[in-house]
Amino acid sequence: MAAEATVKQEAQSASMWKGGKSPFNVSWGKMMMWFFLVSDAFTFSTLILAYGTMRHRFAEVWPKANDVFTHFPFYDGHIPLAYVALMTFILIMSSVTMVLAVDAGHRRDNNGVALWMILTIVGGFMFLGSQAWEWYHFIHGTPAGAYVMPNGDVYKVAENAYHLHHLNPPNDALVSPLHQVVSDKAVIADIKSKAEHIHGANLTRNEYGHPLFADFFFFITGFHGFHVFSGVIINIIIFLNVIAGVYKRRGHYEHIEKTGLYWHFVDLVWVFVFTFFYLV
């Protein structure tokens, strides 16, 4: 029996490789999408790796993410992680609607595909809007701001250093780049006289700490956001094709699967960005 099975398997694998069909049993379009995603994943990996390297290089002065991303819409207080968790939820949800669109495509349900595609597009726009909001707050910074010394050392205002709040620093205290509370009035006055008072972050200045944190934040979330944006555009094109009945006439909905792969990849990258930028 076993020998027979082996012979059958060999015959099958021989026919698989003799041409005319994919040895992986997957269409060339989907395969190429996968290979593109592998190369794109390498690009994202190198970006996150560069971030990791520099983070370890400047480990002792690296900003604490919990001090940076603390805003939440319609709430005037400090809730770390909540907003980015919401963004993660939006993206996971739009991944679900995308995979339901693919599922509807397998059932040749044209209206179902159209419905789930439009929900995926809405989810994409919600994510992009959330990211714009997050960038806005990161760029504009806090009212209290921070003090940058001529040598680049950033002295935060104690009220913005949430991870030190258990020490109950005095109201006018500053926090050194090494996360130590400076409460000596003479030292504070000296720092304030030499330093430049800044708010928010750009590519050269960052009130939350080391400027490289801001650079990597803009570059990595920007590159990811650009992927989301292109994904939304592709989804809109596919959606228009669906309501025009292109795939109904073609008899299969493989295009939905291919854009679906891209869309899930965007979600996948966000899972890593979420961990390495916000959690750890």
Partner: peptide
């Protein structure tokens, strides 16, 4: 979970 079930890789050929 994203790769295996959303991107369906678990149900493709193993070699792929």
């Amino acid at each position: 979970f994203i790769i295996a079930f959303f991107m369906h890789l678990k149900h493709e050929e193993k070699s792929f």
